[in-house]
Structures are given as C-alpha cells and as structure tokens.
C-alpha cells in the first residue's frame, strides 16, 4: 500500500493494515473458490453419454461444501471486524492531547484553514487564516475542529488515510499526527455541488524551524494572502 500512496500520519499504517488484511482474506477465498469452480468444471465435464443430473444440495456430503466455507468465512469476518474496530477506535474515538489545534471550515468549494499563530492558541488575534492551504509541524499531535458553512463536505487527506465528514451546524473534533514532511493533497470526499471535483487543497508538513520561519515571514499580518 505504501508503494501506491505514501503514509504521512501516525495511524496511516493501521488503516493500511486493515486494507491488507481484507485483501489477504478476500483474496484467499477468491482463489480457493475459483480453484474449486474450475476443478469441478473440469471434473464434471461432458463424458461419454452420461446424463446431466440436477443436484439440490440437500445431502450431507453436498452440504458440507456450503457449511465449511461459510463457517470459515464467518471466522474471517470476526477477525476483520475486530481489527477494523481497533483501528477505527484509535483514529476516531481516542483523542490524544494536542500540541496544536486548527480549525478547518469547508464551504462550496474551498477549505478555510485557521492556524494558531505564534501564541499557539486558536481563536486569538494572531491566528493565521489561509484558503486551501494547511500548514502543520511534523511529529506534533493536532486536533482539528471541522465545520461546514453550507452543505456536507468531507475532509480527506489520502496520505493520512483520514476522511471525516463536515456537517453544517456541527463542530467535529478529530486528530492527526503528521510523520513526514512534504506537500500533499487534501480533497473533498463528499459530493457537495458542481465544484466538488475541484475542491482540492494542500497540506504542507514542515519542521518546527520551517514553520516558525513561515510565521515570521507573515510579520504580524494575521490574515495572510493565500497561494
């Protein structure tokens, strides 16, 4: 999975783990089912002048072909659900103490990012607001307060393996911890109108020094010009 899409958050590997597990289990049963299917097609191909029979699958030795895979798949499901809930609980239910909090507001069709300024506190005069650009420090735990001004949007950061719906009227709190520096995509993952497809933004993950320099470069101008 990492080969397809970089991981940049502390929990990206957990989500990938679940996807790997699903792929592995579903892949295993897919291959088994195909092998059995083709084996039977071959075994019961037309021979001599034997007449085709109609099998209802009610005899015990016929039913075991249903029951055994069925039971085994249920076991696999339980394993899957266990690991899925474990990952989900860690990402969506736990809320580790934050180093910083940012406010992310979706609207048709842009993201407004409110960063705590040099005082590290949100909702103060030195907050830095950007449009379609979120700047965070690598290795720090962030809380995000997600809001929407109009319709439903979904804040999605593929490299974080994070997706969270933004619902008008609600403030949804979640968290992430970036683990690598770089600039990555943010996208809207909930159909929100004609501009949905181009409602993208960037997340810039930088070191503490870079972040500091960036804040200084704004030189007290709390509402920065975006892009």
């Amino acid at each position: 999975m990492e080969a397809l899409l970089l991981r940049a958050s502390s929990y990206a590997a957990d989500v990938d783990g679940v996807i790997h597990l699903i792929t592995l289990l579903a892949g295993f049963w897919f291959i088994v089912a195909e092998v059995v299917l083709f084996y039977f097609i071959f075994k019961f191909r037309k021979k001599n002048n034997e007449k085709a029979q109609y099998i209802t699958g009610e005899k015990k030795e016929e039913m075991k072909w249903i029951h055994w895979p069925h039971n085994l798949i249920i076991v696999c499901d339980i394993v899957l659900v266990f690991f899925a809930i474990k990952a989900w609980y860690h990402i969506k239910q736990e809320l580790p103490d934050p180093d910083f909090t940012v406010k992310i507001t979706g609207q048709q069709w842009a993201w407004r990012m409110q960063h705590p300024g040099p005082d590290k506190q949100l909702d103060t005069a030195d907050d830095i607001e950007l449009v379609d650009e979120l700047r965070v420090v690598v290795g720090k735990t962030y809380h995000y307060k997600l809001e929407s001004l109009d319709v439903m949007h979904s804040f999605s950061v593929p490299v974080f393996r994070l997706k969270q719906d933004a619902i008008p009227g609600r403030t949804i709190t979640g968290w992430f911890k970036p683990t690598r520096t770089g600039a990555f995509d943010i996208q809207c993952a909930e159909m929100c109108g004609i501009g949905h497809g181009i409602m993208g933004a960037r997340i810039i993950i930088e070191t503490e020094e870079e972040h500091q320099k960036w804040m200084e470069s704004l030189s007290g101008n709390s509402v920065a010009q975006a892009l």
Partner: peptide, 22 residues
C-alpha cells in the same frame, strides 16, 4: 490568479474562484 476570491472570509468569492480556474 487569487487576486480575488482567495480571502478566507470571502464566502462567495471562494465559490467563484474554482469555477474560474476550470
């Protein structure tokens, strides 16, 4: 270019901006 519609409080401008960029 972002000379208009890129201010964080400009709700309607931010709606128009992506459209102009198509």
């Amino acid at each position: 270019s972002g000379a208009r519609g890129a201010h964080a409080k400009d709700f309607f401008g931010m709606r128009m901006r992506p459209m102009a960029r198509t």
